[in-house]
């Protein structure tokens, strides 16, 4: 695990990987969403509005995956003191927040023609909104902490602890529709029970999800590279100032 702890070695792999993931993921996302929206079938009940699914569902998954990434990185940072873990965790925050916001916005737009409401405070919608606010808090905290102890190391220990604690919202989001009565429907895709989405809609949806995940990976790499370069510059400045 520590083999890639060396930023130089990490960058050697990250540099070509960023473009590769971005291009493959972006292309896949666009093609699958376009296929679903333009050529996929309408739904027997909802009609055309079901096409919002191709962005709503991948955005929901990645909004949650982003915080899973933060939680795993935070654990690696706190337990093994992995030098890149903090950087990786912080890099997940903005893309996670944007995907969570897309999930909320498209869900609201989808809710109006299907349920008859833009917003309702049911368990699923509320817990997803909480996730979005957790991202905002995490970003504010990481920035504040970096400015506060930039002198010492900028390790971001508080941020990592917050990242771990915030992870308790993930099972709440997931199980909200199973354990509580909600307006949001139950889960359509599960490992145990398979999918209740017809194959003609499921394949473009899964393709879009994979594409969005790869794109997410590319964005995380970009943000990690930006922070590593910024840190390098800062260190240099400080050394010059100390002379």
């Amino acid at each position: 695990m520590h083999a890639y702890a060396n930023p130089a070695r990490f960058l050697k792999i990250a540099r070509p990987l960023t473009g590769l993931l971005g291009l493959v993921g972006g292309t896949m996302l666009i093609l699958c969403v376009a296929y679903g929206v333009l050529f996929g079938p309408a739904d027997y009940l909802q009609g055309e509005t079901v096409r919002i699914m191709y962005i709503h569902v991948p955005a929901a998954w990645l909004g949650m995956a982003g915080w899973s990434g933060i939680a795993v990185a935070s654990a690696m940072q706190l337990i093994w003191r992995h030098p890149l873990a903090g950087v990786a965790g912080r890099a997940c925050a903005l893309p996670g927040a944007v995907f969570a916001a897309i999930c909320l916005a498209t869900g609201s737009i989808w809710g109006r023609p299907t349920w008859g409401t833009w917003w309702e405070w049911d368990g699923r919608l509320t817990s997803m909104l909480v996730l979005f606010f957790l991202y905002l808090a995490y970003m504010a905290l990481s920035r504040a902490e970096r400015e506060a102890d930039g002198e010492t190391s900028g390790e971001g220990r508080m941020t990592a602890i917050f990242g771990l604690i915030g992870a308790i919202n993930l099972p709440i989001i997931h199980y909200s529709v199973l354990w509580w009565r909600t307006l949001h429907q139950g889960q359509s895709i599960s490992v145990m029970k398979g999918s209740s989405i017809d194959a003609s809609m499921l394949w473009p949806l899964l393709g879009a999800a994979v594409g969005a995940s790869l794109l997410f990976g590319a964005i995380v790499l970009m943000r990690m590279r930006a922070e590593l370069a910024d840190t390098k510059l800062e260190m240099r400045m400080r050394r010059l100032a100390a002379l």
């Binding site: 309408a42 909802q46 299907t114 008859g116 989405i197």
Partner: peptide, 17 residues
Amino acid sequence: SNILAKHDERYMPPQMA
């Protein structure tokens, strides 16, 4: 005073339904 529709988790084309 207000009615909301709650649909289930199944999605399929009309000809399948």
